[in-house]
């Protein structure tokens, strides 16, 4: 969470950070379910095909001191670029809300690319999830889709996470103890 506050840039970055945070902590099935409900047919090319690698996790000595390397974790990353032109987008969004046709190459070549890059980083080795996160991240950057994704994907995923966390916290809470100190020899 601290990383979110570290960034000097204002809103857009924060929102993307939050988006990527929620997505990375959700399962592929959940993200996909809500993504499918938007009926977007994404058009993009892979700048970096889904790749499994590692990140060295750092911890702090004593929990709060100097950083040290505690061990690695598997991470999958994908980088995509949208093959969607600005003009094309506006047309389709005015025609029918949320539905977009797959961009045929010949049509797009003439128009200006929006040059939107999407990043999909996630713990683990789920390449499908990584790619989907990159796609959602890219569409999220298009003003036409930002609110839609916020409402239809981010919000429900966030709620689901909250549900899970709360029910887990409840179970943990039930194990809270109050120890009483006994007087010796009593």
């Amino acid at each position: 969470m601290h990383s979110v506050n570290d960034v000097k840039n204002s809103h857009p970055v924060k929102n993307r950070q939050q988006l990527l945070s929620v997505l990375s902590k959700s399962s592929f099935d959940d993200i996909n379910r809500f993504w499918q409900s938007l009926s977007i047919v994404p058009s993009y090319s892979l700048l970096k095909a889904p790749e499994v690698g590692m990140t060295m996790v750092r911890a702090k000595t004593g929990g709060t001191g100097q950083a040290f390397n505690m061990g690695e974790m598997t991470v999958t990353r994908t980088v995509i670029r949208l093959n969607v032109s600005e003009g094309h987008l506006k047309e389709s969004s005015s025609e029918e809300k949320g539905v977009e046709e797959k961009c045929v190459e010949e049509e797009c070549v003439e128009e200006k690319y929006t040059d939107i890059i999407g990043f999909g980083y996630t713990a683990g080795r789920d390449t499908k999830k990584s790619e989907l996160i990159a796609v959602v991240d890219a569409y999220f950057q298009l003003p036409e889709y930002t609110d839609l994704i916020e409402e239809k994907i981010l919000q429900p995923l966030r709620n689901k996470q909250r549900h899970q966390e709360e029910s887990e916290a409840k179970k943990v809470d039930a194990t809270k103890v109050n120890f009483f100190t006994m007087v010796r020899g009593e």
Binding site: V7, Q17, K25, T55, V75, F119, A123
Partner: peptide, 17 residues
């Protein structure tokens, strides 16, 4: 939560828990 600085993005993102 584990987060990581992504150079191309210019900000740190969460990778998961």
């Amino acid at each position: 939560t584990v987060s990581m600085m992504v150079e191309e993005l210019g900000f740190a993102i969460d990778l998961g828990e």
